[in-house]
Design a protein around this nucleic acid. Structure first.
Lengths: 255, 255
DNA sequence: AAGTGGTCTAGACCACGGG
DNA sequence: CCGTGGTCTAGACCACTTC
């Protein structure tokens, strides 16, 4: 056998999806149907469907069937500073978003805790791994859809005892607050990556397997030192990050 | 049953991984071992392992076992223009890369073809979907590791009959060539997303399931119109994209 | 040869969603 | 109720890796 039977089944179904024969939101043949069509046992059929699921091509819903994933139009978040405008991301605040429905994101939760720094957090904040840092966790929804998780990290020596270490919004924004504390932001570095969601992200975004998250690590610096790490976590299928350089013809500017 | 048995098994193993009891590159207990330990059938054990695989936590190798995925230090590609330096990405050329081993990427393949524009390509280049466009496909390796797929798209009216429509490197670079053709680049927009790899990407990167790719769509514009779409495709686990704004204290600049 | 994972079968019962 | 997918079992044979 050149190819496993379940891979053959998956390939045939995939062809029907990419060729458009099966359109988004269409239901695939039921598992018993596929058993008959390909003369395979149920487990084999399910292996094929699992493959497609993990490639992000289909979703299955119990009691209903397996459906071709429709491509929802993603929101766009701006990384770059637009001329004459403030920077794209703001920790724990609304951020410039362009999307199918440009309504304002709603902050629903706000949690503050102290926790030991993980290796990656420690590296960015230039502290020892395991050292206690202040974590502010926010989540945002747009139109009721979970859209964004934000975790902000501060060193204790810098933010301990300030409003940053307590729950609740910071009226003037944390950048301004840090400036008042003598740590004015001079610049930042964004580090963008993608990975599969962990358990917490899985349940927040209500994702199944086959869908990555996009992670933006924004490390903010004063003239002397890192003053904040903000971690933005987006659903891979609902978000595009945009970065602009130079000048773009006016008619192509919105997207 | 509160939770399915295979989820229970997966959770227990996951805990051992995240707690460090099972370190990167450690081998998990064999499937027969897990059957005994959890009093489960082999299929159930394999379901649990499949879950962990699709979450990007483990890989299995036939004849050897299932192993905790070690986090390889990713390469960093620069999105932003560094002061006084040329822009980060260049189609089909070396690009500024910082990584564990800062050797030069090697271009191994170079294919040019004419193909109908997909919906997303058509939108970016402002042509009709299905219209013929010129596609230049490149792949790059670093230290023998597949690292980057680049697809550049040009409209036929702009690039047809030029060196862009023929195989082979463009000595002066395509930006310069386009400028000579009267289409000087005035700016570009990067659109960054993440998704699961398709079949072609899967085989090029030698990925299993549970590992996303990062896609950067760079649309370049002259003063009047889009002149090029370049699509960079990276392995999610080997790459971070970096974007810098403002000034960063010198000692934190390299990473 | 022995141990590992890869593929496949046949059948069972459960849980969900809609008529 | 019925059809859908979700979970689980028990057993078979194959393919790869190491000794």
């Amino acid at each position: 056998m050149a190819q496993a039977k379940y891979q053959e089944i998956a390939e045939r179904l995939r062809d029907q999806i990419t060729s458009g024969l099966l359109a988004p939101d269409d239901r695939l043949p039921s598992e018993p149907d596929l058993e008959r069509k390909f003369d395979a046992s149920r487990n084999t059929v399910r292996l094929a469907l699992a493959l497609l699921t993990n490639q992000g091509l289909v979703v299955t819903r119990q009691g209903l069937g397996t459906f071709v994933l429709g491509s929802t139009k993603p929101f766009t978040a701006l990384l770059s500073r637009v001329k004459g405008q403030p920077s794209g991301h703001h920790a724990s605040m609304a951020l410039p978003v362009v999307g199918p429905d440009p309504s304002k994101p709603e902050t629903v939760r706000f949690v503050v805790e102290t926790a030991p720094a993980t290796a990656s957090v420690a590296e960015k904040l230039a502290v020892e791994p395991g050292e206690q840092v202040i974590v502010r966790r926010t989540s945002q929804h747009i139109d009721g859809v979970p859209w964004l998780l934000i975790n902000s990290y501060f060193t204790t020596d810098l933010a301990g005892g300030t409003a940053l270490a307590q729950a609740g919004l910071i009226p003037q924004g944390s950048i301004k607050l840090l400036a008042e504390l003598g740590h004015e932001q001079a610049g930042f570095v964004d580090e963008i990556g993608a990975r599969m969601p962990d358990t917490r992200e899985l349940s927040f975004f209500r994702l199944s397997t086959g869908m990555p998250v996009i992670v933006v690590n924004r490390t903010s610096y004063s003239r002397e030192r890192p003053i904040r790490l903000t971690r933005y976590i987006y659903r891979g299928d609902r978000v595009r990050l945009a970065h602009v350089e130079g000048s773009i013809p006016a008619r192509y500017r919105h997207d």
